[in-house]
Computed example of a mutant assay.
Amino acid sequence: MNRLSLYIRQSLQGSYTLSELQSLAKIICLDLLGMDAIDFYSGKDIDLSQKKEKDLETILGRLRNNEPIQYIRGNADFFGFKFEVAPGVLIPRPETEELVDLIIKENPSVKRVLDIGTGTGCIAITIAKYLPLATVSAWDVSDEALAIAERNNVCLGTSVTFSNKDVFTEILNEERYDVIVSNPPYVTIAEKEEMDAHVLNWEPEMALFVMDDDPLLFYRRIASLGLSLLSLGGSLYFEINQAYGIETSFMLTELGYRDVCVIKDLFGKDRIVKASR
């Protein structure tokens, strides 16, 4: 281990686990300070310029303040692609990769896809990358999120159509979709106290939280819209709060959806609900 990596770990000790310290040291050295990979892995010591020393202290200060490394880097990895991120959008999660992977595998010939609550655009753009014959649209209520999603769209060479739409207002849309996917806010206010500071203090509340007295608020509204927006035989996919798999599937059945299924993530938690129109 070189002196720089050791210094980074010592500076952040107590705030992160050992595995997190290892990962952060690598990201800081290679991605943020531009250290040569061979030098890093061989443990070679390097001298930083005054500017990079100052940059390093700024980075360490932000990390000690619980700011996510993805916001410091300005990007997050998702499905093998780098997506621009900023505090105005939710950082893409591995669980969402499982959702996208399922959609791609189950819908190889899909023609029209809608992503509701797109954030960075990671779901819509990844689907467009892997299903290039599909026409992909995405909605969000945040202008900041849509601006970031549009930049990701350009950088990754896709042609997703992004629109500012609020699902709780009247939706005038003549388009019909073969797949609708959504990862809406699903963390209840009661769950706030269980969350890490790097999520709670930095990521946008409007993308995370839903009121305790109606945890299925977004799911119910999107599912209701799906009754008119989905083509006959089309599929609806949700990422869900692990605590509400049964409730979400029951709600969809009550609305008349068929083949409702709750799917567990890699950690064995209820994470995806899918249904057919």
Results as ranks from 00 to 15, higher is better:
103 I>K: 03
152 N>I: 02
176 R>E: 12
101 D>I: 00
89 V>G: 01
3 R>W: 09
31 D>Y: 02
152 N>R: 04
154 V>T: 13
114 L>D: 03
64 R>C: 09
273 V>C: 10
257 Y>K: 06
32 L>H: 09
153 N>Y: 03
3 R>M: 10
200 L>V: 12
151 R>M: 12
206 M>H: 14
237 Y>Q: 06
61 G>N: 14
139 W>G: 01
123 I>M: 04
32 L>E: 05
254 E>K: 15
23 S>F: 05
59 I>V: 12
89 V>K: 00
97 E>M: 08
242 Q>F: 09
132 P>A: 09
140 D>I: 01
18 L>E: 15
78 F>Q: 00
205 E>Q: 13
181 V>D: 02
49 S>P: 07
183 N>H: 05
149 A>E: 00
82 K>V: 02
89 V>C: 06
11 S>I: 05
269 K>V: 01
54 K>P: 00
207 A>L: 07
256 G>P: 12
223 A>L: 07
149 A>P: 00
269 K>H: 14
259 D>W: 03
206 M>Y: 10
15 S>I: 08
74 G>W: 00
116 I>F: 03
275 A>K: 01
232 L>C: 11
31 D>P: 02
152 N>D: 08
175 E>G: 01
250 F>P: 00
182 S>G: 10
205 E>H: 15
20 E>F: 10
32 L>C: 10
152 N>Y: 03
32 L>D: 06
155 C>L: 14
67 E>F: 03
32 L>M: 13
78 F>K: 00
169 T>Q: 14
48 L>C: 10
240 I>R: 06
173 N>G: 02
124 A>F: 01
273 V>G: 06
107 N>G: 07
273 V>R: 05
86 A>Q: 07
255 L>S: 08
243 A>R: 15
119 G>L: 05
96 T>W: 02
227 L>M: 15
129 K>W: 05
240 I>T: 06
190 A>H: 12
221 R>T: 11
255 L>D: 08
65 N>Q: 14
242 Q>N: 13
3 R>N: 14
206 M>L: 14
